[in-house]
């Protein structure tokens, strides 16, 4: 459904220094720097898959999304989305996709969301019956009751986001790009937006590419993740494997019923550096994935425990480890970019 080959996007940025003198200087001597926002990535996404797109700020996620939707023209490389070349901006292509940016609203600010919906109905040429059906579905799935008649500016951030999603999906796009759809939302709202995205993927069989800072979004929705940093694809595969590769440890949280013998504990888990004391009676230990069950049964038989929980390390930690281990080849390339 989506096919990307050796995609690149370089920007030429005018280097401006602060201050009056340097602004005078820049009138005569313009310095440019090439920023490699996306530097040769390739991937394919089959129909109906939800893919999580991860990376720190400025990694190239949004630039890639903009190229996939046709807003940006790639510097080089090939893109095919649903058989179209996005930057040709064909209307038939636009009717099949949707881009939701958590930070940019597409609803008309001063009017109720229902007005924007009616515009979309005409612009996307949605037949009356289909429109009614889809609107009813969306109102139910997103629980929009009573929100559509209020001016958008009076909605809360979460309510607005739900209306944004509905507006973006009225024309039943089968390819959906979600750029930080849960940004700034509270946990409940994140959860309901997340559930909705999963739901839409299932009943529309939509292909979805999703970026998020919240790992919960990604681990709840996506079987496959792509990790990008400095314009390079560092990882493309299942979440499980990502964790296995970059997080070979699991965390065991222990609560003792009376103070434990720390020396013995260290012996069982394999070293004092594995132990983090969280309180007088609670301790966190890191253990290798393969030894988790062996060590926990040992712990249970040697200590009077009131609680024992085994946790995956947080995704944030996994991702940052992935970034840290990536080769820094792009760093040099950037420096050579001065001209």
């Amino acid at each position: 459904m989506i096919k990307v080959e050796d995609l690149r996007k370089y920007y030429k940025v005018h280097v401006r220094e602060a201050g009056f003198l340097s602004s005078l200087k820049s009138l005569f001597l313009r310095e440019f720097r090439t920023v490699k926002a996306v530097d040769g990535i390739s991937f394919e996404i089959p129909e109906g898959q939800i893919v999580g797109f991860l990376g720190p700020n400025g990694a190239g996620k949004t630039t890639t999304m903009k190229m996939l939707t046709g807003l940006l023209h790639p510097t080089s490389g090939k893109i095919h989305v649903a058989g179209y070349i996005p930057f040709q901006q064909k209307n038939a292509f636009k009717k099949r996709i949707s881009l939701v940016m958590g930070q940019k609203s597409q609803l008309v600010w001063d009017l109720p969301a229902s007005e924007t919906f009616l515009i979309h109905k005409e612009i996307y040429e949605i037949p009356d019956r289909e429109y009614k059906q889809q609107l009813d579905d969306l109102v139910d799935l997103l629980d929009l009751h009573g929100l559509l008649e209020k001016p958008v500016r009076q909605l809360s951030l979460g309510e607005r986001m739900k209306c944004e999603l509905a507006a973006a999906l009225l024309h039943r796009p089968d390819i959906v790009f979600l750029d930080e759809p849960t940004i700034g939302l509270d946990v409940n709202m994140q959860e309901s937006v997340r559930r909705f995205i999963g739901e839409y993927n299932r009943y529309r069989k939509a292909t979805i590419l999703l970026t998020s800072h919240y790992m919960a979004d990604v681990s709840a929705l996506c079987e496959r993740v792509m990790v990008i940093n400095r314009g390079l694809l560092l990882y493309d595969g299942s979440i499980r494997e990502l964790i296995a590769r970059y997080a070979p440890y699991k965390r065991i949280q222990l609560t003792f019923s009376h103070e434990p013998d720390l020396r013995m504990l260290a012996q069982i888990v394999g070293g004092t550096d594995r132990i983090k004391q969280a309180g007088p009676l609670t301790v966190e230990v890191e253990v290798e994935r393969e030894r988790v069950s062996e060590i926990s049964s040992n712990l249970l038989s040697h200590f009077p425990l009131s609680d024992l929980t085994i946790e995956e390390p947080p995704m944030e930690a996994v991702i940052s480890r992935a970034f840290a281990s990536a080769p820094d080849q792009n760093e040099n390339a950037n420096k050579e970019g001065f001209d």
């Binding site: 939707t69 046709g70 901006q89 636009k94 009717k95 996709i97 949707s98 881009l99 940019k104 612009i123």
Partner: peptide, 12 residues
Amino acid sequence: QGTFSNKLLRPF
């Protein structure tokens, strides 16, 4: 502001 992108993505 870049809000122009929203309008550009619509088929009109």
